[in-house]
Amino acid sequence: MKNVAQRAYFGKALAELGDRNKDIVVLDADLGGSTKTSDFAKVHPERFFQCGIAEQNMMGTAAGLAVSGKKVFASTFAVFATGRCWDQIRQSIAYPDLDVKIVATHCGISVGGDGASHQALEDVSLMRSLPNMTVICPADANEAYKATMAMAEHSGPCYMRMGRADFPMITGEDDEFTIGKATVLKKGKDVTLVGSGQMVSVCLEAAEILKDDGVSAEVINMSTVKPLDADTLLESAERTRCVVTAEEHSIIGGLGSAVAECLSENGNQPLVRVGVRDSFGESGDPDELMIKYGLTKEDIVFAARKAIDRKRKKKGFLWRK
């Protein structure tokens, strides 16, 4: 499996979209070289607007363009694309339900050396709580490409988050991607592993370890965190009867919370969340950080065992009754 940066495919998709659709406009806050919106700027400079290090104005400008009929992509690092301008997104984009696609790169702890100030671990939570907002966390570069194309066809506000590093390519070029639809990457019967973003590939690795131990794990790629594909989740959870979520994000407000909300209102299967446990990150090598903050395949395996254990205890309790 080769490792590829999601943002490279995002930039490529954006440039292609620009050729096809003259209404596509891209806004940058002085990070286009990193987010790869520079790929669009190279071929469509007249529709690329540099807004400088001023994200609040960038979001408002995006809204003004969108309300005038443009399809706007506004891009910067996840920290600055969400928390820095949350009220602007709320008031000027989500509330009027405008066609603005906020695309963030450098999410999560794998940003590495830059440290906590640049490691967005709350962005999904911030965006998920906004009415009208769709939240997409593509699992790899192929999905980043397809999600970009899908957003161009979608009407209304979207938030897409991508990492900085090169991640394993786990989906094929021809695999289907639909906003709001989860995909089952591996069938299993003992536990459901639900991943988002780069943690989907880690879930697949964890499933291999579990398989060696005789545990059959189902792996779901929940690439749209909002709206959550409850049908796919509940269908799986009803069969396996326990669930693990894995995300490179705080366990508060992100995928783990979304799945917990869905399960507690519908199925009540035991759930264990893998994610950053209510703390800021720090500087370090991405791999070291993933270990320190509990985001490895071993952490998912441990969580799966815990979930299965709780399922068994629950069954015993019911039996004793």
Partner: peptide, 19 residues
């Protein structure tokens, strides 16, 4: 445009003017 949270209107107008 929806407004009310102050300080945001000129940015919106910028977007309209660019369009």
């Amino acid at each position: 445009m929806s407004t009310g949270s102050l300080g945001q209107g000129i940015s919106i107008a910028n977007g309209m003017a660019l369009a």
